[in-house]
């Protein structure tokens, strides 16, 4: 049993500030973190290790610093980590990213057959949720997106039963391995990294692959060339309201009467609904 978790290093967007005058992003000093949604994917994979002794591989594509995200994955108990890093990947959109990741996954699969690929629901920077489905299509794996829970796996019969989130409820789905699972966020957070795993993570080598190592020959499919989407202009959103008119009065009742009057004046239908 072999599962691969795709992880991405992202800027901690809670710490990104926009310059008030120029409207540009101030990235300096913004720490890079393991994409929070990938942590749920890691936990899901770690449970397969607990239950079935699965071998876990983490794979990331990004600049050399992304090694930190992989080390984090190792500290939780992942067995092996690969970083796909090459200048020619720069500027990849989701189509080009899924192409490169799928190529690396095929290479990994040739050494050790992959049963399940896990991804996060989305990242907090690109935030598209498109990479997981793209990779599944390219590998020809069954795509199980927005999975809430893996209910059952039978490795003999290669069957898997999951609950997945849909807009109007929960779908109960039976499928087959190999599959790609995008993991919906959970209530329970990830386990703590154990001390032995943390020590191992600090020492364990992260294998770094360039384009050729990953077996990618077609340059037209990666980087800017392989990316159909083009970023046009970037601009600050307008603020069409505010500053707010402050309502004042001698008592909370007086202030609230004023508020209710203003609401009903603008939306008389709201008054009619008062129940």
């Amino acid at each position: 049993m072999h599962a691969v978790i795709l992880v991405k290093q992202v800027p901690d967007s809670s710490q990104i500030r926009v310059h008030p005058q120029t409207g540009t992003i101030m990235r300096q000093g913004v720490p890079a973190i393991l994409n929070p949604y990938d942590v749920y994917a890691l936990e899901e994979a770690l449970q397969l290790k607990d239950k079935y002794g699965a071998f876990l591989t983490a794979l990331s594509m990004g600049p050399l610093q992304a090694e930190n995200a992989l080390r984090k994955a190792l500290s939780y108990g992942v067995d092996e980590a690969f970083l796909l890093s090459d200048r020619s990947f720069a500027g990849s959109d989701t189509l080009a990213t899924s192409y490169a990741l799928a190529a690396a996954l095929r290479k990994i699969d040739s050494y050790r057959k992959i049963d399940i690929v896990f991804t996060g629901k989305q990242t907090i920077d690109g935030d598209t949720g498109q990479v997981g489905p793209g990779v599944a299509r390219r590998l020809g794996f069954q795509l199980l997106s927005y999975v809430l829970e893996i209910k059952h796996i039978d490795f003999e019969k290669k069957t898997i039963l999951v609950h997945r989130k849909s807009e109007r409820g929960i779908q109960i789905v039976a499928s087959k391995i190999p599959c790609l699972i995008t993991v919906f966020e959970r209530k329970r957070p990830i386990r703590y990294a154990s001390l032995p795993n943390m020590i191992r993570a600090a020492r364990a080598p992260v294998k770094i692959w360039n384009r050729v190592d990953a077996g990618i020959e077609e340059l037209s499919k990666i980087g800017l060339k392989g990316s159909p989407t083009v970023v046009g202009k970037v601009f600050a959103p307008q603020n069409s309201r505010g500053p707010a008119e402050r309502l004042e009065g001698r008592s909370p009742e007086e202030i609230c009467s004023l508020l209710v009057e203003k609401i009903f004046e603008k939306f008389p239908e709201v008054e009619k609904k008062l129940s």
Binding site: L95, S98, T128, Q130, P133, G134, L143, S227, P228
Partner: peptide
């Protein structure tokens, strides 16, 4: 959730751009 799954799959097969 439904259409993001579908759109990414279709865009990958057609090899075209998809803005999210």
């Amino acid at each position: 959730s439904l259409s993001r799954d579908l759109a990414s799959s279709v865009a990958t097969i057609l090899e075209t751009g998809l803005t999210a």
